[in-house]
């Protein structure tokens, strides 16, 4: 009988690739040319925002000659023209990138924290607590976000940027918590969770080590879309004059500054608008390929 009962080398098999799930997703995302371009463009915009003080040719708030230098169309000295206060629009757009992105990211961090916590608790607890929490969420979701924000901001004019970020964040987690709850609900009966339970893992450990790491992908997708959404919201609110307090430069503020003479002073809306559209588009493209990569892995 040549057949062995020993399998001393059972460990052999197809060459395992040394790659963590994270590295795999990143590679999946970068495979598409569109997402490579998007990542590059977004990288440039972020860099521009980060390095604003070094790049901007002028002080964004400086009003060098409110009569002689106002309302200038694009020229070599002012590639994006100047605004009614003689400020350099290019410099303001550059600083606007900084502010708009920062608001987008910070507000999203706020909603991410709330949404993940709320959703994870509801999903993991289940039962009556889950039911109650979800009905509360339904109530929140039934009020349009923009309306809620306008109401708050009109009632409290002159809010600081910090407060604006908090409000944007406070109104942005409802959808996300839904997603998180659904994912936690779907995963909490997975066998690896049961295995952790059988090992004696605490609820907190199961949540942090087993559930959340496995729902990072949909959360990141939602967060990416969330940043884009906040940027648009902020611009809209600023355009209505209840967003970022002037004279700070955000993309919405710049457009607002030129809105009185929109057809003639086209540069005032074109350039900040272009940046905003680019940012939102690239974020959306990235979110899409993230979610593709996620689907593929499943």
């Amino acid at each position: 009988m040549p057949w062995q009962t020993q399998d001393f080398a059972a460990a052999s098999g197809p060459t395992p690739q040394r790659e963590s799930p994270l590295a795999l997703s990143v590679r999946n995302i970068l495979r598409k040319p569109s997402s490579r371009v998007a990542l590059f463009v977004l990288g440039v915009i972020v860099l521009v925002g980060l390095l604003a003080p070094l790049i901007a040719p002028y002080n964004p708030a400086a009003q060098p000659d409110i009569v002689g230098l106002k309302d200038l169309p694009p020229s070599l000295a002012h590639p994006f023209g100047t605004d009614p206060y003689s400020r350099d629009v290019l410099s303001r757009v550059i600083y606007g990138a900084r502010l708009s992105l920062m608001i987008g990211i910070l507000a999203t961090i706020v909603s991410l924290t709330l949404g993940v916590a709320y959703g994870a608790i509801a999903g993991y607890a289940g039962g009556i607590l889950d039911a109650v929490m979800m009905r509360v969420l339904d109530a929140f979701l039934s009020i349009p976000r923009l309306l809620l924000l306008i109401g708050v901001l009109v009632a409290w004019p002159k809010l600081s940027i910090g407060a604006l970020v908090v409000f944007l964040g406070l109104t942005g987690w409802f959808g996300l918590s839904r997603i998180v709850r659904g994912q936690v609900l779907a995963l909490k009966h997975a066998e690896f969770v049961t295995a952790a339970q059988a090992l004696g893992a605490s609820r907190r450990r199961i949540l942090w080590r087993h559930l959340l790491p496995n729902i990072v992908s949909p959360i990141v997708v939602a967060a990416t879309l969330g940043v884009a959404h906040v940027i648009v919201l902020e611009a809209g609110l600023s355009y209505l004059g209840i967003g970022v307090p002037k004279p700070l430069a955000s993309w919405g503020n710049i457009i607002q500054d030129g809105s009185d003479q929109f057809p003639t002073m086209w540069w005032m809306s074109l350039f900040p608008g272009l940046f905003m559209v680019l940012t939102v588009m690239t974020l959306n493209i990235l979110a899409e390929s993230l979610s593709d990569a996620y689907e593929r892995r499943r």
Binding site: M1, W3, Q4, T5, Q6, D7, F8, A9, A10, S12, G13, P14, T15
Partner: peptide
């Protein structure tokens, strides 16, 4: 049988 006979190892990858 006391022990099962085994085929050691696994099927190679179809790419190689």
């Amino acid at each position: 049988q006391e022990r099962l006979n085994v085929i050691p190892g696994t099927v190679p990858a179809p790419t190689e």
